[in-house]
Simulated assay, not measured.
Amino acid sequence: MKLYYSPGACSLSPHIVLHEAGLPCDLVLASTKTHKLPDGTDYYTLNPKGSVPLLELDNGERLTEGPAIVQYLADQVPDRKLAPAFGTMARYRLIEWLNFITSELHKGFGAFFMPGMPDEAKALYRNRLRQRLQYVDEQLAGKSYLMGDDFTVADAYLFTVTNWTVPTQVDISDLANLQAFRERMLARPSVQAAMKHEGLIK
Rank of each mutant, 00 (worst) to 15 (best):
G116V: 08
Y92C: 03
I101N: 01
A85I: 08
G110F: 07
Y92T: 07
A123I: 02
P115V: 05
G110E: 04
F109L: 11
W97K: 01
D75T: 10
F112T: 10
I95M: 10
A68G: 08
Q76P: 15
E120S: 12
F112I: 11
F113L: 07
E104M: 03
W97L: 03
Q131C: 11
F100S: 04
D75A: 15
A74T: 14
G116R: 01
R93D: 14
L129G: 02
S103Y: 13
K81W: 06
P115C: 08
S103Q: 14
I69G: 00
G108S: 12
M89L: 13
T102F: 08
Q71C: 04
L124C: 02
A123C: 10
Q131P: 00
F112P: 12
M89P: 06
L98P: 01
I95A: 12
R126E: 07
R80Y: 09
S103T: 15
G108D: 08
N127D: 15
V77S: 04
A68S: 08
F86L: 12
G116E: 10
G108H: 08
R128I: 11
P118Q: 07
D79H: 12
A68N: 01
T88L: 08
L124T: 13
M114L: 13
G87S: 04
L73M: 07
Q131D: 15
F113R: 06
H106N: 06
D79V: 09
M114K: 15
A111D: 14
E96H: 11
K107E: 07
Q71I: 07
R130L: 11
I101L: 15
N99S: 15
M117G: 05
L82N: 00
P67D: 05
F113Q: 06
A83H: 00
R128P: 03
F100N: 05
Y92A: 01
G87V: 00
E120Y: 01
Y72C: 05
A90Q: 13
R128F: 11
F109C: 10
P118G: 02
A74S: 13
E104Q: 15
L98D: 00
R93L: 01
K107I: 02
T102I: 11
V77L: 02
M89S: 09
E96M: 09
Q76C: 15
E96N: 14
A83Y: 02
L129C: 06
Q131F: 07
A111N: 14
Q131M: 11
A68L: 00
M114A: 13
L105D: 01
R91D: 07
L129V: 04
F109M: 10
N99P: 13
A111T: 15
H106D: 03
K81T: 07
A68C: 10
R93S: 09
L94S: 02
Y125L: 03
P84N: 00
F86T: 11
K81M: 10
D119I: 05
L82H: 00
L82D: 02
G116T: 10
L105Y: 01
K107V: 05
N99R: 11
R126N: 09
A83D: 06
R130Q: 14
F112R: 12
R130C: 06
M117A: 12
